[in-house]
Amino acid sequence: MKIIRYLLLIVACAILQAGIFPYLKVYGAGPDLLLVMGGISHFLFVWPVSLFLSIFAGVLKDVLSLSGFGLHTGLFVAWSFCVRYLNRHIAIETDRLRVGVMAIILVLNAVITGSISVLRGTAIPWPRFLSMIAVQTLYSLLLLPNVIRFSRMSLTLSWKIRLPMFSFRKNNES
């Protein structure tokens, strides 16, 4: 059930990233919510499940991208293995450490995708290249705590809604 909820959250993030954030860009760059969702799945789920969720986020990003199919899925899988490798050596338990790991992933992902784009022949001026990497990373990091909070909240959310009126009666009876 939690996996389905998280999959729906990934889809919601894709819709937000493609439908809303293009209108809220800063210096031509927006946040990479799908990478954030793929990344934080490692802190919320166990290994094979988080890999599957990362692949799903990567496929979704590939479907909604203009670049070659498979690039983002491949990168998301690579980040999965990297986080797993890191987690074996360092216990990534605190939120600060998690934000740090995500910051490294966000920067590296932006640098790799940008470099691939440049190597394919896209002429991007250096100042623009660097500013877009910086803005995208900072924008994603700014949203990261809220995304983590919302993901945790929706994963622990109970479908049974207790109305205060009934609980009041119950208290009176007791």
């Binding site: 990233q17 760059a29 991208s65 203009l66 670049s67 991007i124 877009m132």
Partner: peptide, 9 residues
Amino acid sequence: IAHPLDTWS
């Protein structure tokens, strides 16, 4: 209906 998700295009 939407914009592609990659930053470099």
